[in-house]
Design a binder for these strands. Sequence first.
DNA 1: TAGAGAAGGTGTAAAATTACACCCTTACTT
DNA 2: AAGTAAGGGTGTAATTTTACACCTTCTCTA
Lengths: 221, 221
Amino acid sequence: MDIIHTTGNTCINKLLDEEKDELFGSARNLYFKAGEGVVKKGASVHDLFLLKEGTVELILDEGREKQSLILLFAGEIIGVNCVYSTKYYRFSALALTDCEVLVLNYRVFSKLLTNNSGFSMSFIQYISMVNERFLNWHMNLTEKNSAGALAFLLCELEKSYGRSSFEIPLTRKDMARVIGFSRESVLKNLADFRKEGIVESEGRTIKILDADRLHDISTYG
Amino acid sequence: MDIIHTTGNTCINKLLDEEKDELFGSARNLYFKAGEGVVKKGASVHDLFLLKEGTVELILDEGREKQSLILLFAGEIIGVNCVYSTKYYRFSALALTDCEVLVLNYRVFSKLLTNNSGFSMSFIQYISMVNERFLNWHMNLTEKNSAGALAFLLCELEKSYGRSSFEIPLTRKDMARVIGFSRESVLKNLADFRKEGIVESEGRTIKILDADRLHDISTYG
DNA sequence: TAGAGAAGGTGTAAAATTACACCCTTACTT
DNA sequence: AAGTAAGGGTGTAATTTTACACCTTCTCTA
């Protein structure tokens, strides 16, 4: 199955220069340290948080926080689904790395959607793609066994960072939560991957040696 | 957790009378028998399928067809996420009951989105809500044990039909696929529910006796 | 009306995952 | 420098779910 993977939303490019000036002129930058909360579940959506740099994890921090929703990388609007539906965040976002967020003004954004039909059509495409990505992510993780889910996560990280060797922004416990399995399952599967020469891992440094094999495990696992 | 449950999309009500005439004038009705395929995964999205009557199941009919995506009831546009993203269906839709579908012309619909900003904003709200519903449905099923998942399904059906007693449009095997567990798990949990006086069930006739208890099992199961 | 097939149902065995217990190492704190 | 907390790691037991085997009922069809 193809993994739909937005490389960031492009709808803002549909704006005229003067509209961009208005949107960015009313925007401000926020910086978050790794581990900080970016948005809090239940809070009202006042503005749109465009993730310019870093990785965040979306979590449903309820009683049962077995599994996180998804990881978001640079280019995504955090909680874009909630902006025009519930108007409050349905989940929390946690910075996994240091993050830079551009806060776009809700009223300006909405006005531009209303006035510029090219922009609104492009935004419809964007949220449709985000929808697909969420669903795809979740289906990929929940239909798999623990090995397949871990392989999927590693493949996604490789793709997002564009390198086969990277520092994973998650502890083993975090990885378990993201893929919806136990910490022990992550450790055991990671040990298996090492034994079979599919990955090298030492602490947070992960190097994917056999991407094809990993992808197969992700697909058929 | 609140279950977001669209009672059908209302964005079409934002259209002017003449726009409605144009949209419905170019539309046609299709009728499907229970068991028939409504849309096929991989097919291009030519038009929008508005489900006027009946219940359909969305399935990712790949090799691993462990779990279906969601059930859709009257009022929903089938595959609305795909219309402006992938442009082809990412899943198949199967009629569980006899269905009536209103086929809306894609070009007319898109033109109205472009020309009527109130409609497009309302459509953005609609697809955001659909997004929420998909995610909520999936999270509810995958975070639960088999009893909780079955309880969730029964609660959703009760809510959709607006009655505590109904004919379930699914065989036990179907129910298993919808909630992502095995047929035996469904049967055993259903037997437990009967023993504990939570439901009565005889074949496809289901009567919910203790909705509160069922809801608790759904929430904490 | 006999037979096949689909559906509901249940017990037991097998498989997978989680939970627990415990180890080692590192890094931070006092 | 010792103590403690957090993270990585691994074996074994407990739990959950699935798989298998088998039975009954109902319906459709030859």
